[in-house]
């Protein structure tokens, strides 16, 4: 068209495009990541087993079907973590498939205790008002604090899993709201939630203390807890 020579095209580009703001630093090393992932897998397994077992015990047909669907979601999460562990230098995934601590074991025992058909509210409260919100918290913290470059595979799984967790939490909460219709129901739900929350607080979250990082600051601005060291159960 014009007389000006066309600028020479080059294929040399920066390794990170201007819009790619991912960075290297992350809060967790390989060992800590593996520990957390092992805790996640253990808790996801316990959850899918509980949901599967409860299917036969709930008379409400819609709840029965949702539990079946969600049972698979959490089994799939457990599978993703199971497959991630060898990539984190743990060649025997069972070795790290552990509860964060003894309080987590007690939590699961208490959560899976309700069995009678009239206890659907308690079953759903345990899964959807206590445990799944804890998963959402733990996974969100992990996704937002791990290295965006070195730990991309974990982030990818966390992103898929978080979507499920949030969808399942919504389903569960709506089922609960539709089941809780009297003051007595409210009291039942609240009492059971309080009992389970107390044990979960004792456990410190799904990956133990530090599951969602330090939450308070000293006068000088330093965190009062160190998630990577205190997280070791």
């Amino acid at each position: 068209m014009g007389d000006a020579p066309a600028p020479e095209r080059t294929t040399a580009r920066a390794p990170f495009a201007p819009w790619d703001r991912r960075d290297l630093p992350g809060m967790f090393d390989v060992a800590e990541t593996a520990r957390r992932v092992g805790n996640y897998k253990w808790a996801e397994m316990k959850l899918f087993e509980a949901l599967g077992g409860w299917i036969a015990t709930v008379p409400e047909l819609d709840v029965k079907m949702r539990l079946g669907t969600h049972c698979y979601h959490h089994a799939w999460h457990a599978e993703l973590w199971h497959k991630r562990l060898p990539e984190l230098r743990e060649m025997k995934p069972e070795r790290l498939t552990q509860p964060a601590n003894e309080a987590m074991v007690r939590f699961m025992d208490a959560m899976t205790e309700p069995e009678a058909p009239e206890l659907t509210i308690e079953k759903l409260v345990g899964a959807y008002r206590v445990l799944i919100p804890r998963f959402i918290a733990a996974y969100t913290y992990h996704r937002n604090n791990t290295s965006e470059i070195t730990d991309a595979p974990t982030i990818r799984s966390l992103t898929f899993i978080l979507q499920d967790e949030i969808d399942d939490w919504r389903d569960g909460e709506m089922m609960l709201q539709s089941l809780i219709s009297t003051e007595h129901d409210v009291e039942r739900a609240a009492a059971h939630q309080a009992r389970l929350e107390a044990i979960m607080v004792e456990a410190g979250g799904i990956a133990g203390p530090g599951t969602i990082g330090p939450t308070t600051v000293m006068n000088g601005g330093s965190p009062t807890t160190d998630s990577t060291t205190e997280g070791d159960a």
């Binding site: 397994m45 899918f48 087993e49 599967g52 299917i55 047909l61 029965k64 079907m65 949702r66 539990l67 079946g68 669907t69 049972c71 698979y72 979601h73 959490h74 089994a75 799939w76 457990a78 599978e79 199971h82």
Partner: peptide, 20 residues
């Protein structure tokens, strides 16, 4: 086996869909 447990959970989802 762990993988069989996973298959059973998957089957639970399939059966839930079949009920639907």
């Amino acid at each position: 086996p762990f993988a069989l447990k996973l298959d059973m959970a998957r089957q639970a989802w399939d059966e839930a869909r079949h009920v639907e």
